[in-house]
């Protein structure tokens, strides 16, 4: 119990600093990108250079991040729960499976998401794994005339 608490406190301290650090790196990278923007000659610049506004925002974001560290540090009460981590994993699986088939990726991800809740029934699998994806596919294909990207399963319908 104590070790859990220590681990959680250590994790929270890490996240307290990690978030401002990530924002800092993001701002630094974005600022560097803005220096690469084409600069307009004075006659064409119409008020401000294309990089001026984003640079102003980045400076403001850096100031606000400093203010967060100083006045309002990030506090996290609990670690990320396993089901949420698994949901991130499922999003990754979806990204990979989309390369094979969009419809197949949706079906597998939905079935996976159903498993993340404690209560599991056969009818839930039937509804979420088959009826909902098939229903959504035909709703979009027939009613909204939206064609899914082609893949090994959708090709069966599109020919």
């Amino acid at each position: 119990m104590d070790s859990d608490l220590k681990q959680s406190t250590r994790g929270a301290t890490l996240e307290t600093w990690l978030v401002p650090l990530v924002i800092l790196i993001f701002c630094g990278f974005t600022y560097w990108l803005t220096t690469e923007f084409t600069r307009m000659p004075p006659i064409l610049k119409r008020g401000i250079q294309p990089s001026d506004f984003p640079q102003l925002l980045i400076a403001l974001m850096l100031g606000l991040t400093a203010l967060i560290v100083w006045k309002d540090p990030i506090r996290v009460s609990e670690r990320i729960h396993n089901p949420t981590l698994m949901a991130f994993g499922l999003i990754g699986v979806f990204v990979l499976l989309v390369q094979l088939d969009f419809f197949f990726a949706l079906t597998v991800s939905c079935l996976g998401l159903t498993l993340l809740w404690k209560k599991r029934n056969w009818y839930t699998f039937l509804i979420v794994g088959f009826l909902v994806p098939i229903g959504v596919f035909f709703l979009f294909d027939q009613v909204f005339e939206v064609r899914f990207p082609r893949g090994f399963l959708t090709n069966l319908w599109y020919g």
Binding site: L106, V132, V146
Partner: peptide, 18 residues
């Protein structure tokens, strides 16, 4: 059941965005 609701939200989110 939430185990039906949220996967449906996911599928509608993805297909809606597409």
């Amino acid at each position: 059941p939430v185990q039906i609701l949220w996967p449906c939200v996911f599928i509608f989110s993805i297909v809606g965005a597409y």
